[in-house]
């Protein structure tokens, strides 16, 4: 409970900092006396935050809609033989960094959010897929046996026994997916996706370290905030599981 309150306070501080950033001209010019326009004012930080979040979370949603059913199928008796395909996709994607995926998708989809979204969905789907498959595989055989003994149908077994037991693993996969997604969105700024990475890229392109610092600070802070929020969610799920077992 106290951790949730701290997190809420930090979110407020984050939003306040976003509000203050374009107004703190004296701070930026004191830090960067050699830069003639040290305050990023091209767009509102809230617009950038909004489109960063929208892009990352939309990608995670699409990825989850693809990956969770695929992970379920890969652990059913009929689908199990296709498990190596999942491992293959994973191995292949691991040898290509997200920035390369964004760049390769760029000529196909053009500047804007589309190439980033494609790369985002791919890289967010992988941890979710792996988490779903390994979470379901880790469900103890006697729990399944008991569910079968109770006369539950395959769908009921999945919904009432397997998925709830796999929940902690699923949540940790979600956490990885969100972290990756927020980071890849920031890289998407090179392909024209509007996000908190945009000031970083614009600062790097125009030799303006003040823009770089502002963009980098808020991007990093957003990633840490989201990670902590999901960690809290996972911990709460864990304690609820504890209550159930006890």
């Amino acid at each position: 409970m106290r951790r949730a309150a701290w997190l809420g306070a930090e979110i407020l501080a984050f939003l306040a900092a976003l509000w203050a950033a374009p107004r703190a001209e004296r701070l930026w010019s004191a830090l960067f006396p050699e830069v003639s326009r040290p305050t990023y004012q091209q767009e509102s930080w809230f617009t950038l935050l909004g489109s960063h979040l929208a892009l990352s979370l939309l990608a995670v949603l699409i990825a989850a809609a693809l990956a969770v059913p695929a992970g379920i199928l890969a652990t059913r008796r009929r689908g199990r033989r296709f498990r190596p395909v999942l491992d293959a996709v994973f191995a292949l994607a691991q040898s290509l960094p997200p920035v390369a995926a964004v760049a390769v998708a760029l000529p196909l989809l053009g500047f804007g959010a589309a190439p980033t979204l494609l790369a985002l969905v791919l890289y967010a789907a992988l941890p979710l897929l792996r988490a779903t498959a390994s979470g379901l595989e880790a469900v103890p055989a006697d729990a399944l046996e008991a569910a079968r003994g109770l006369g539950l149908s395959p769908f009921q077994r999945l919904a009432q026994v397997e998925l709830p037991l796999a929940r902690p693993v699923l949540l940790s996969g979600l956490r990885v997916a969100v972290t990756l997604s927020v980071a890849t969105t920031a890289v998407g700024a090179i392909a024209g996706a509007r996000c908190l990475g945009t000031p970083i890229i614009s600062g790097l392109a125009n030799a303006n370290p003040a823009y770089v610092l502002q963009g980098a600070l808020f991007t990093a802070w957003l990633a840490l905030l989201l990670d902590r929020a999901l960690g809290l969610l996972a911990a709460e799920g864990g304690s609820r599981m504890g209550e159930l077992v006890a």
Binding site: T179, A183, G197, L224
Partner: peptide
């Protein structure tokens, strides 16, 4: 693991200054 959460592009940017 805290470092792992920070997007690479942000960390590189933060190191420049």
């Amino acid at each position: 693991s805290g470092l792992q959460v920070i997007p690479a592009i942000a960390l590189f940017g933060l190191l420049i200054v």
